[in-house]
């Protein structure tokens, strides 16, 4: 029993790590720009697809393909901000949401057109399995978990320690005060979209290497990402980290001990319960 619980916790960590990265991207955009960036999942998966393409069709090593995919992802993020979201920045918040939905359809369609409807898996050649007592951890899974932790720590350091990071936080907390303090509010949205898309692409690559990318997978992740935000608290970085990990492990334990058919329902029920008991989320500030 103990071994099973431990194994399920390890199982849930990998997917939880992906949730955290997706949610961090979403929470940055939401906290600072107030946009529910629904196309985030599909754009993230585009990054994964691109890595796959570079590795399999262009013969690039995985470690060389990743920076290219990240750079392209960041560029795409900037384009999305400038062409799609900026024109509706000052309109009703519904409009930004509808734009996000339209973007999702477009990016999904482009992914389908460019990369086909068959699932793709980024080949890594990593197939060793580590054993600790009765618990097994595949090599690749371990690297994904470690990479997620490194990225999260890097993000935290960036926000806490660098000047740009502090400016972003300042804008998130109080836009007018930030302007008074001399923060360049114009460049912030671009930086935010660049960072969040880079995190998303990283998540897309992890999904593509450890699992697979296929039509519709990105939309699934973005919904879970938003569930994490609600769970952890809107616009809260620690909330996204805690929420993503909790959701990943909850799903795993629920599938193992309650019902695999209703695994996703259980995840959403947890989210709704949190809303009822603590509407601001686990680590959110009281409004």
């Amino acid at each position: 029993m103990l071994i099973e619980i431990l194994q399920q916790t390890i199982n849930g960590l990998a997917i939880g790590g992906v949730y955290v990265l997706i949610a961090l991207g979403l929470t940055t955009v939401f906290g600072i720009l107030g946009i529910a960036h629904f196309a985030h999942g599909s754009i993230s998966m585009f990054g994964g697809y691109l890595t796959f393409f570079l590795v399999t069709s262009q013969g690039l090593p995985v470690l060389a393909a990743i920076p290219v995919a990240l750079a392209t992802g960041i560029l795409l993020g900037l384009l999305v901000e400038m062409l799609a979201y900026r024109p509706v920045r000052h309109a009703n918040h519904i409009n930004a949401f509808i734009v996000a939905l339209g973007l999702t359809m477009m990016v999904e369609g482009i992914n389908l057109q460019l990369f086909g409807h068959e699932q793709v898996v980024i080949p890594t050649g990593l197939s060793r399995v580590f054993r600790f007592g009765g618990i097994t951890v595949p090599e690749l899974r371990l690297y994904v978990i470690i990479a997620a932790i490194v990225l999260v720590v890097a993000m935290m350091v960036f926000v806490e320690r660098t000047k740009t990071g502090q400016a972003i936080r300042a804008v998130a907390e109080n836009r007018d005060a930030a302007i008074l303090m001399g923060v360049n509010v114009k460049s912030i949205p671009l930086i935010v979209f660049g960072i969040s898309t880079a995190l998303g692409v990283a998540a897309g690559i992890m999904v593509g290497a450890l699992f697979a990318i296929a039509p519709g997978i990105g939309e699934g992740f973005v919904v879970k990402g938003f569930a994490v935000l609600i769970l952890g608290g809107l616009g809260s970085f620690p909330g996204a980290i805690l929420g993503g990990t909790v959701l990943g492990i909850t799903e795993s334990i629920a599938a193992g001990f309650i019902s695999s058919a209703y695994k996703d329902v259980i995840a959403f029920v947890v989210m709704i319960l949190v809303l009822l008991i603590r509407p601001q989320g686990l680590l959110g500030r009281t409004p």
């Binding site: 734009v99 359809m105 477009m106 389908l112």
Partner: peptide, 9 residues
């Protein structure tokens, strides 16, 4: 899908 999304945006 692309066209539909584009129209929406």
């Amino acid at each position: 899908l692309i066209l539909y999304g584009l129209i929406l945006v």
